[in-house]
C-alpha cells in the first residue's frame, strides 16, 4: 500500500482538562481533495497544526506522506504548503516581500511563473504593504504562499474565509487543479456547500472526534432520495405499501412523498399503474446528511453527559 498523504493514528490532544482531539483515526490518500468539516472548536485547526509540528500530540501519531509529523517535521514541512486558519502576516512587508521571505525559507523550491500566475488569477496587488490590504487580500497572499512551491500536500485551514464569492470559486478551481496536477489537498471548512462542491471525501469532526468519513458519491447513492409525486386522482392509501426500500413520508390527497433508498426501481414500476402529473426527486445535500448525522450524535451523546463547556471554547 502506498504511503497515505495523511495518516492519523489514535491522535489525541489535550489542553489541560480540555480534550481538543480524542483518539482520531483518519487516512487521506494521495490525490484526494479532502474536506475536513466541523463546527468551530471541533478540533480541525488543532489537527492541522499538529501536522506541521506547531503543536504536539498528547498521544497517538500523525504521519504525513509517510513521514512522522513530529520526528521528521522539517522534511514534512518541505513537502507541505500551509495556510493558517488565523492568518497573520508581517504587516509592513509588501505582498511581494512576504512571498520572497517565504520562498527564501523554502530554499528556492518556488515556481516563480506559477506564483505570478496565482497572483494574477487571484487579482492580488503584491506591491502593496500587507497592513494596507483588506482581509480578503491578505487571505490571497496566504493562499499564494501555500501553493507557490507546488507542494505534494496542501493543508488549508478555512481557505475561503474572507473571500468574495467570485474569489472563492477561483480558489476552488485552484484546488481542483492542484489535485489534477498530482497534489493532495486537505482543507478545513465549516461551509458545507463549499465542501460538497469540490471534495471527493469529507471527514466530519465534532468535539474532537471524527463522526464519520463520507465518500460523497457513495453517500449520495446510499442516502434516501425524496420523491414527490402528484397524481391525477388520489391513489388509495395502501397503494404503495410493501415496497422494499421505500417509505411513504406523506400522503396528502393527490400528492405523495416517498423516501427511496435502494427501492427506486420498484417505486417507479408501481407508479406506472397510476396517472402521474408531476414528479420531483431531490438528492440530499451534504447539509442534510450532516445535520442528520450531527443531531443523531447529539442525542446519543446527551445522556452520557455533555463534554465540558471548554470543549467548545477551545479553539481549535
Amino acid at each position: 500500500m502506498p504511503n497515505a498523504a495523511i495518516e492519523l493514528e489514535a491522535l489525541t490532544k489535550r489542553y489541560g482538562s480540555v480534550l481538543a482531539l480524542d483518539d482520531v483515526e483518519l487516512r487521506v490518500e494521495p490525490g484526494e481533495l479532502f474536506g475536513f468539516l466541523g463546527p468551530n472548536g471541533a478540533g480541525k485547526t488543532t489537527a492541522i497544526r499538529i501536522l506541521v509540528d506547531l503543536i504536539r500530540p498528547t498521544a497517538g501519531h500523525a504521519r504525513v506522506l509517510g513521514l512522522d509529523a513530529q520526528r521528521d517535521a522539517r522534511a514534512v514541512r518541505a513537502r507541505v504548503g500551509y495556510l493558517p486558519g488565523d492568518l497573520r502576516l508581517y504587516e509592513h512587508l509588501t505582498g511581494h516581500e512576504l512571498l520572497e521571505l517565504i520562498a527564501s525559507l523554502r530554499g528556492g523550491t518556488v515556481d516563480a511563473r506559477y506564483r505570478d500566475d496565482l497572483i494574477a488569477r487571484l487579482q492580488l496587488d503584491p506591491s502593496r504593504a500587507i497592513g494596507e490590504l483588506s482581509r480578503g487580500n491578505r487571505q490571497k497572499v496566504g493562499i499564494v504562499q501555500a501553493l507557490m512551491s507546488r507542494p505534494a500536500l496542501v493543508l488549508l485551514d478555512e481557505p475561503t474565509s474572507g473571500l468574495d464569492p467570485l474569489m472563492q470559486e477561483e480558489v476552488e478551481a485552484l484546488l481542483r487543479e492542484t489535485v489534477r496536477d498530482g497534489g493532495t489537498v486537505f482543507f478545513s471548512s465549516h461551509v458545507l456547500s463549499e465542501v460538497e462542491q469540490i471534495c471527493t471525501r469529507v471527514a466530519m469532526l465534532n468535539r474532537g472526534a471524527i463522526l464519520d468519513v463520507f465518500d460523497l458519491a457513495e453517500q449520495r447513492r446510499l442516502a434516501p432520495r425524496t420523491v414527490a409525486v402528484t397524481f391525477a386522482e388520489p391513489p388509495p392509501a395502501d397503494a404503495f405499501a410493501g415496497l422494499a426500500g421505500v417509505t411513504v413520508l406523506a400522503h396528502d390527497g393527490r400528492r405523495v412523498e416517498f423516501a427511496a433508498r435502494d427501492g427506486i426501481d420498484a417505486l417507479v414500476k408501481r407508479l406506472a399503474a397510476f396517472t402521474v402529473t408531476t414528479l420531483d426527486t431531490h438528492e440530499p445535500s451534504l447539509e442534510e446528511l450532516f445535520l442528520a448525522r450531527y443531531q443523531q450524535d447529539a442525542t446519543t451523546a446527551a445522556p452520557g453527559g455533555a463534554p465540558p463547556e471548554g470543549a467548545h471554547a477551545a479553539s481549535a
Binding site: 522534511a75 500551509y82 517565504i102
Partner: peptide, 14 residues
C-alpha cells in the same frame, strides 16, 4: 503573540 511566527515555523526550517 502577533501570530506571525506561525507561518515562519511552518516552512522547512528547523
Amino acid at each position: 503573540q502577533r501570530g506571525t511566527l506561525e507561518l515562519v515555523l511552518a516552512q522547512p526550517v528547523s
